[in-house]
Design a binder for these strands. Structure first.
Lengths: 261, 261
DNA sequence: GCGATTTATGCACGTTTATGCACGATTGGC
DNA sequence: GCCAATCGTGCATAAACGTGCATAAATCGC
């Protein structure tokens, strides 16, 4: 009874604890703020839903922005699901095409699956993808240069944008941070979204491979809406509601096979 | 008994151990985190399922990013000799410098040895080197773009040359195919030599790490001669005759240590 | 002002999760 | 081919969890 904090005050305090200690325990917080653990759990649940912390069994941890991990680390996450998406997406690339491969771990997976002898021209702004494609003798490889953005792992500066303006790709494989039928495709960083939008608008078709965790979410910055030019590749277990919503918006939707061929 | 970690914290810690030590042992982790080995095994199993490590008898190993390129294969050739050269060469990079890193397996080795927190600007035309440098937070990274030359593994087109004309690096780490006091530095491919010459002429100093098999040889196309601006890094067992010849031409010569520090 | 509605909280309940232990199967060195 | 170390599985248990409901305070509508 000593301290009756307002809900908002309590949440603020929890956030401070999170930042200071790198973790919070539900039981400790309950004792300290003398409220029931149920209340603390509710708080943590709401904070997690708002993206302010990560809920774990027993308490919560600070959110590590997905961008904080490097691209090569992101590749390691859910590789078999990404591979399944990539197997489906890579089939869209036909001989003779000019294709833009944006940054993103799923696009790296796609690059690795390209047939070595397939005759295509591939443009990318991502060194890691370029390195992977160097192995493929059939691929004509063009790199967009300029200062590299470390968070994105690619060249997205004004320089790269100017180079991109000269392109007219047949296909553009876009990496995205969120995908929603209403909000469209979204990205975490402004400059990244700007770059993606520019390339997307110049491409004849858009291909976006979307892991299920990104479905129905929207990040801070809009790239483009979903329309007839979009080809969305979803995981086999993606909710049908999202699929129909995307199709209603005009997009073509492909379902990836299971993790193993 | 010191601390009971949350599940997620434990897994994060295991991953750090993996990265730091290159392996983890189930028994050690159990003792250190004072949980049962069963729990550790469960963790490792789940992490392996998520592609975060590779499960082996007795513990786990880090996943090896499968990216094997021809350039990275060249790195695998005589790696300890190249590493010795690289260790000496990398010491020439001082905070605040702007450095050009040319293509070449030795230059890739140098890139990998750069201190993560060293504050430098690095320009490169090689995707693989850029990918390696992406991991270093202190490095400002600029990529030269354009069509990639598959034989060289780097961007050396007219486009990249025009971009390079805007540079004035403090140091230029040049890859070379032959090095001789009279013939100077030479390269196999015409366009490659052209590019290297352009960058070399614009740099304040030239650093060339030379494996002994290239000493006294000349390839088809000249890059530049040996002069006062050159710093040559030779292997410990390099013949003294070459060293004195290079010094007579005005170059500074550094001898690398043995394969192991 | 006073009833209606919302909001925050606690409690009771059944469910899920993390963990350790027991036991039989597998592995790998010798 | 043996033996100990290591492994996976099934099971038990306690802690943590979510949900539905009740209560009390705060807010709103009139």
């Amino acid at each position: 009874m000593s301290s009756d904090l307002l809900l908002r005050e309590r949440k603020t305090l929890i956030q401070e604890r999170l930042k200071a200690n790198g973790r919070v325990l539900a039981a400790d917080l309950a004792a300290e703020l003398n409220v029931s653990e149920d209340t603390i759990r509710r708080d943590l649940r709401e904070m997690a839903a708002a993206g302010l912390c990560e809920r774990v069994y027993g308490g919560a941890l600070p959110v590590v922005p997905a961008a904080h991990s490097s691209l090569s680390e992101r590749v390691a996450m859910a590789p078999e699901r990404k591979a399944a998406l990539a197997r489906t997406a890579v089939g869209l690339i036909k001989p003779g095409m000019t294709v833009f491969l944006d940054a993103g771990s799923t696009n790296l997976a796609i690059a690795q699956l390209i047939e070595p002898e397939l005759q295509v021209t591939i443009v990318t702004n991502t060194p890691l993808i370029a390195a992977a494609l160097m192995e493929k003798p059939g691929v004509d490889l063009i790199l967009l240069g300029g200062p590299l953005n470390r968070a994105v792992g690619a060249a997205i500066s004004a320089r790269a944008q100017r180079d991109a303006e000269l392109l007219r790709p047949d296909l553009c494989f876009l990496g995205t941070c969120g995908a929603d039928a209403e909000a469209g495709l979204t990205a975490i960083y402004f400059e990244d979204a700007e770059f993606k939008r520019l390339v997307a608008l110049r491409s004849r078709r858009l291909v976006v491979a979307i892991t299920s965790d990104k479905l129905g979410t929207a990040a801070a910055h809009a790239i483009v809406g979903i329309d007839e030019r979009a080809v969305l590749v979803l995981e086999a277990d993606a909710p049908a509601a999202h699929r129909t919503a995307f199709e209603a918006a005009g997009a073509e939707v492909l379902m990836a096979g299971g993790p193993e061929r």
